[in-house]
Nucleic acid binder design. Structure first.
Lengths: 193, 193
DNA sequence: ACCTGAACACCGTTCAAGT
DNA sequence: ACCTGAACACCGTTCAAGT
């Protein structure tokens, strides 16, 4: 069953995809969902909480997609596949990505929960990669933070036009992810095939 | 000599620091600079171009600060110091950082130029670090992109609250930068002290 | 060339009222 | 409990006019 709340979130995402952040107005969201321009106030305390719900939904879908990609894949490859999935998501949906990691002035419990769930799934993949000898040892949470920072930064810089798009230094975010694994793998004490 | 254009940029930054992105309105910028609310239109084609000028100015200052930090430091340390400076800047001025790497819908030549200058200074530092044996070899532009992505991603995730702030996985952006250098250094063929 | 004040269309939010 | 329409204060932008 699709609640009005869900429909409002979906409408916001559609407007975001079509016209960028400026196109997401409560009035237009209401119009697209077939309700008045302040019906949203019965479901979200203000506009930013609607946007936080959008961000939470994106994060949840991204986490689910990552877990789905892991199934039936060798443990040594799962993490890299998750990171490449993250990169593809960011590059495919720039406005969603920028919104999700925007400058929140409010604390949304919903968004915080989705962020924690995503981090947990990611740390699990790091633990498996370490066990498979694809990553060096050490505190997995901390190594996870490093890997996530690289993937996130590569996408964010690319979307902002701060990655050189030409010449020898040309590197796509996905290349940088691969590079990092290339650097880290030799530091591993192989433990299993 | 301080032009009106500079005063408008300075006013925008002050408003940004005081009240976040929502506080930066052309009307308030004009008020703070002592002019009418549409005087800015004689210096910027629209609001976004004023914001792009703010971003360019921040980038330029950051690049200058990085170069200044390099002076009289061993070549092997310059790059790490630049990255730590970048991290400190981002954490100290969250709103400026988020604005600078925001979702630009316009192409500002001024901003693109500042971004390129920053990247160039960074690549220079990578070349020196490689020569000093503090980093592995390979295409310096590409290695620079990797390092910059990590520093940028660490700050951006931290500012968005996506870095675990507690427990064993707790890592500050500056820690992640240090971690990366720790991982990369053993891969070096030492060439000089 | 630069600045001003009035005007326009739009927005987020509040409120009284309906079911 | 949920939705509506009117109203308020604010905003970006345009325009005619002034120096």
């Amino acid at each position: 069953m699709e609640t009005m709340r869900d429909r409002l979130i979906a409408a916001a995402i559609e407007l975001l995809d079509r016209g960028g952040p400026a196109a997401v107005t409560l009035r237009e969201v209401g119009r697209l969902a077939g309700v008045s321009h302040n019906a949203p106030y019965k479901h979200f305390v203000d506009k930013e909480h609607l946007l936080a719900a959008v961000a939470a939904r994106e994060l949840e879908r991204q986490t689910d997609a990552g877990r789905r990609r892991s199934k039936g894949r060798p443990a040594g490859e799962v993490l890299q596949a998750m990171m490449q999935g993250y990169v593809r998501w960011g590059l495919r949906h720039p406005a969603r990505f920028k919104l999700t990691f925007g400058a929140w002035s409010t604390d949304s419990a919903e968004l915080a929960k989705a962020a924690t769930a995503g981090r947990t799934a990611f740390v699990d993949a790091v633990v498996q990669a370490q066990a498979a000898g694809a990553l060096p040892g050490g505190e997995p949470e901390r190594l996870a933070a490093l890997l996530q920072a690289l993937a996130h930064g590569a996408v964010d810089l690319a979307l902002s036009g701060h990655l050189s798009k030409t010449g020898k230094g040309h590197a796509r975010p996905s290349d940088l992810v691969d590079d990092l694994f290339t650097y880290l793998r030799p530091l591993t004490r192989q433990q299993s095939g």
